[in-house]
Nucleic acid binder design. Structure first.
Lengths: 234, 234
DNA sequence: TGCAACTGTTACAATTCGTTAGAATCCTGA
DNA sequence: TCAGGATTCTAACGAATTGTAACAGTTGCA
């Protein structure tokens, strides 16, 4: 399991530096952005676990951004803001933020609050074994076997298993192509993109997906893939 | 779905009363406890969704209780404490609390923070709030599917879904083009206007709107759009 | 050695979605 | 009421992205 990924969106370089340093020291991967536009562009390629967002951004309505983030991404959103009024905090939280920290903040507290968000996320999706159930299917990763509701079995290859496991680890969450490439040990660079497509295509065939109307592996044009279906690991 | 269940553990009657009132008013079921002993006894029979815990309890070590709660129960724990030092907050959070509110607190903020905890819990597991009903239609945002009253399904694309979601989030309210552009992450530039028009046009087609007489997405010339129809999110 | 399974590559088909352009609609003022 | 400009609608186009069949190199095994 790779280190949790935290993004920082703040227009003040000093804040970006402090937060980046302290979070990296705490063992997280981080990426900082000065403008909302850059940040949103990056979201097409990566999926952060926690997003730190400063509300007072020059180039966008911070609250609208938070709302979008909370709804569309599975990530936790922590607002960092200079506005300390109760009303500000309440609207921020109601709009979908998971926490609200006011400036000036103590870096140690920020780390603790980021950890709290991560802890909860992993707690609810705790997994253990190597067998997973979803939508009438059972995947046995120890045997490389996919079993349908009738008990009919098909084997899947190692490469297909990698993709399937990635999906089953983060169901109902957007998985960007970059992230997938990363997780699949994809040779960074050239045309591994096509190889990924092919892997997914083959997996879809084994899951008997209707190409016109996939029910499990959904493509989000320009963004990535999303696995639908409730997953239970055993 | 029954109302979420929130427990309050505080030795001051006045605080119990305030929190109980305001949380019930917000639509939660609540139960208050003055001593940790009573609270832990009750836990054998009920499973709260969120626990508000005051650290300065006379009959137990609050932090140890929080630690136990966070580990054993699935509930989210919010600490309410008179101690406002950063170090107190950090240890509270590190021990497993999901949030830390210092006294004196504003009741509205407590409600907002309780809601934030609930939202995240359901988001990662049950994934509610992704289906909306309106005028005989059902929109499944998790599956990118639009279903008519006959149960006939059409898929919609990501871009179409963004527009639809925006409308369903603010029904019967004017949405200006600028606002829409902002929410859709529109490239700040000039001719995104036309792109928006096209998105809406495509959405209208899928909703089988009569161009002469749209019943759902109404254009307000020179101002924006307004979505008619009662929306129920599920 | 021969065979079968696996997996990346290539090439082309299909889809998405912004852009363009001209038609349709709305508003204002005469 | 009508002309004319502003605004919005939408069919059509095309660039970018994604799907997949076919092929080829590799590996493992009998």
């Amino acid at each position: 399991m790779t280190a949790p990924f935290v993004t920082i969106l703040d227009d003040e370089p000093e804040i970006r530096r402090i937060l980046g340093d302290v979070l990296q020291e705490a063992g997280f991967r981080t990426q900082s952005f000065a403008r909302a536009r850059e940040f949103e562009a990056a979201l097409k390629h990566v999926t952060p676990d926690v997003c730190l967002v400063d509300l007072s951004l020059p180039d966008t309505d911070g609250l609208a951004l938070v709302h979008r983030l909370a709804l569309e991404q599975g990530a936790s959103v922590i607002i960092i803001s200079g506005r300390a009024q109760v009303q500000d905090r309440v609207t921020g939280l109601e709009l979908g933020a998971d926490d609200y920290i006011t400036k000036p903040f103590d870096p140690a507290e920020v780390v603790a609050r980021v950890r709290a968000r991560l802890r909860h996320a992993t707690r609810t999706s705790a997994k253990s074994g190597n067998t997973a159930h979803f939508k009438g299917w059972t995947a046995h990763f120890d045997r490389y076997v996919l079993e349908d509701s009738q008990g009919c079995e098909t084997t899947f290859s190692h490469a297909e298993g990698e993709v399937l496991r990635l999906f089953l680890d983060s169901p109902k969450r957007l998985i960007s192509r970059a992230q997938m490439q990363d997780s699949l040990g994809g040779a960074a660079g050239e045309s591994f993109d096509r190889a990924m497509d092919v892997r997914i295509s083959r997996l879809r065939t084994k899951l008997r997906e209707d190409p016109k109307n996939p029910r499990l592996i959904k493509t989000i044009y320009g963004a990535g893939y999303i696995f639908l279906g409730d997953v239970t690991w055993v």
